[in-house]
Design a binder for these strands. Structure first.
Length: 269
DNA sequence: AAGAACGTGAGC
DNA sequence: GCTCACGTTCTT
């Protein structure tokens, strides 16, 4: 049985029109096999495995003496923890967190009581963000200048930046424009690694899962010049402006750490 | 502000 | 090198 979805457009002449070029798949093969073995819903519904997340983020001395993984070997990860531990750019999530901590940008505070509820990411006790004192560094520009990893990592990791502060997505934040800009505005960073990064389709939203082009929308009709994917196949996430409102919502709140609470924002007072 | 056109990153 | 399609810029 196929799980592919074909949501018809306004009136869907689709199938009949679908060009031979249109992949009969939600995504290109490259996207299909994009590393994540589980669907989004899986992350949401599946209780987190018993993984010592902290140990990943705060590696033991033994682990620590392993410098940033040389290019020839992949970063280690907890067994049974799927590929989501790796950022889209390949950087180990735990390593990223560690970098943040070393930079004094992230404070990990254990949540008391564990709050079993864990709901979807335990944003549970919402804004009780009693400003845990943290470093009050104005690091945003700093970060933008040297941070080596993909902006997509942060939403994944549950981090966000807003007003020059790092926060947990569980807290809700204004956005991550500063960071995101890193990937999308070459000029904004003084040349980081040269160039903007293209985001990829999420592969999970309805448009992404749609199989066929409508062949009627402006994008389809104007494909030669427009260089755009069918409007009805345009990924919902890509429609959002990076850093724009709702951008953070593109990732379920801490799906990776359902029981989380120990990711607390560092507030610069 | 929305849509069209274009430049170009990325996969094959 | 070709194609697809994302991001940016231009036009309406």
């Amino acid at each position: 049985m196929s799980t592919a979805v074909d949501i018809a457009g306004p009136s869907s002449p689709d199938q009949a029109h679908s060009s031979a070029k249109i992949p009969n798949e939600p995504l290109r093969p490259s996207l299909k096999r994009s590393s994540h073995p589980y669907s989004l819903s899986h992350y949401i519904s599946t209780p987190s495995p018993a993984v010592d997340v902290k140990s990943l983020i705060q590696p033991s001395p033994a682990q620590e003496q392993r410098p940033a993984q040389p290019s020839n070997s992949k970063p280690r990860r907890a067994p049974s923890w799927p590929d989501m531990w790796e950022s889209p750019s390949g950087l180990h999530l735990a390593h990223a967190a560690e970098l943040l901590m070393r930079a004094g940008l992230l404070a990990l505070t254990p949540v008391k009581g564990g709050k079993g509820d864990g709901e979807t990411g335990g944003s549970g006790p919402e804004e009780e963000e009693e400003d845990s004192t943290g470093c009050s560094t104005d690091f945003q520009p700093f970060l933008g200048a040297w941070f080596p990893f993909s902006p997509a990592l942060f939403p994944l990791a549950g981090f966000q930046m807003g007003g020059g502060q790092w926060r947990s997505t569980a807290v809700g934040a204004e956005g991550i424009e500063g960071l995101v800009a890193e990937g999308y505005s070459p000029g904004s960073l003084g040349g980081g690694s040269g160039g903007r990064r293209k985001r990829k389709r999420c592969g999970e939203c309805v448009p992404c899962r749609r199989q066929t082009n409508c062949e009627q929308c402006s994008s389809c009709r104007n494909r030669k010049r427009g260089h755009q994917i069918c409007k009805y196949r345009k990924c919902e996430e890509l429609k959002r402006k990076p850093g724009g409102p709702g951008f953070e919502s593109r990732v379920p709140l801490l799906p990776f750490f359902p029981e989380i609470g120990w990711f607390k924002e560092v507030k610069t007072q």
